[in-house]
Design a protein around this nucleic acid. Sequence first.
DNA 1: TTTGATGCAAACTTTTTGCAGCTAC
DNA 2: GTAGCTGCAAAAAGTTTGCATCAAA
Lengths: 118, 118
Amino acid sequence: MTRQRQLIYNIIRAAPEHRTAEEIYDLARSEMPSLARGTVYRNLGVLVRDGRIRKLEMADAPARYDRERRPHPHLVCEKCGRVTDLIMPEGLLDPLTAGLAVTGYDLKLYHVCPACRG
Amino acid sequence: MTRQRQLIYNIIRAAPEHRTAEEIYDLARSEMPSLARGTVYRNLGVLVRDGRIRKLEMADAPARYDRERRPHPHLVCEKCGRVTDLIMPEGLLDPLTAGLAVTGYDLKLYHVCPACRG
DNA sequence: TTTGATGCAAACTTTTTGCAGCTAC
DNA sequence: GTAGCTGCAAAAAGTTTGCATCAAA
């Protein structure tokens, strides 16, 4: 755990936001200006591989990172891209996964957030 | 509807495969070698905007295109990326969407397809 | 002390775009 | 005839990587 990795990890753990690599890079650089963008991407990769954070692939937008490691659905604003966590009701997907050897899921619900509704 | 657009649309409609832009480009070029990659992307964009096909954003991989326009879940192979359509059981997501003004969803189930299981 | 991480910069992949000429309607 | 489309090529956006140096265990 280098200072860089620790810093990036702390930024993600500190808030429920689902930030992009670029946002994390900017935040991290305000604390460690010498930090390289490549280091951010490399460490995000490591943290995801180690299961400490989760990567969220977004439609037509850069990926976002989630401090919550347990699988859960997301609510995504169509306009601004803001993401919030949802709670998965027990057994919700069972009718779909029956008979399939499903290893994971990705469920996004889209809406327009209050801020974007204006 | 130019010949190029028609060709691209036909390729998508002809098979249940969920192809990438590059695959569509290659297939189209075997019939119209002068076709430009930019034209493929532009027309895929138009066809999606017109609601004739659907764009599927994939994790760490190029987008794929789906001839089926009605919303439905997808089963995605973690190894090869192959995508197949699933049928959404009536009201499955209701417990999640209750109270939210949800405009759409994206549901992917991951597995390892028979071919990749070897 | 040595394994792995860093900063930098260049490269890569996927997708978008500006432009001059062409085509479907 | 003209609005919209094409091919081409360059550029954008997001991410990855090679390399020489540096730092953590």
